[in-house]
């Protein structure tokens, strides 16, 4: 709009000017609104329903395993068992435990078959 298009009042009225400023709606930039809503979400207390669900889940676990101590012990034992299986201690090497056979023996005896599947023999025959 050009300056000349404006309706210019002849006398300045401060009250009118202030009232006009009050009528003007402030436009909130969308980026600011998003920041504010993100803040709100970040610090919002949990709803009662969410709290109840979390409490129920924790209590269910605890009841199933007869208390936090037993549950903690089971987790620790599982971790130790996994580690022994993954990296057995040298003290176990000389033991002839029933059902225990070193894995590398099995692979050593059948290494050729495992690697070639006999296809190399077929090639030499033809």
């Amino acid at each position: 709009m050009k300056m000349t298009d404006r309706k210019i009042p002849q006398k300045m009225d401060l009250d009118v000017l202030l009232a006009q400023a009050g009528e003007h709606d402030t436009v909130v930039p969308s980026a600011l609104m998003q920041r504010v809503l993100r803040d709100a979400q970040a610090v919002q207390p949990l709803s009662q329903a969410t709290k109840k669900t979390q409490i129920r889940f924790g209590a269910g676990l605890r009841d199933r395993f007869a208390g936090w101590t037993v549950l903690g012990g089971m987790v620790a034992a599982s971790c130790v068992g996994f580690w022994i299986g993954f990296n057995p201690p040298t003290a176990l090497d000389g033991l002839n435990l029933p059902g225990y056979a070193p894995v590398y023996d099995t692979f050593g005896s059948e290494a050729a078959e495992l690697s070639g599947f006999g296809w190399d023999l077929e090639e030499t025959d033809t």
Binding site: L37, A40, Q41, Q44, P45, L46, S47, Q48, A49, T50
Partner: peptide, 8 residues
Amino acid sequence: AAGDPRAS
């Protein structure tokens, strides 16, 4: 404060 996600 009660956790209503639309209130904010």
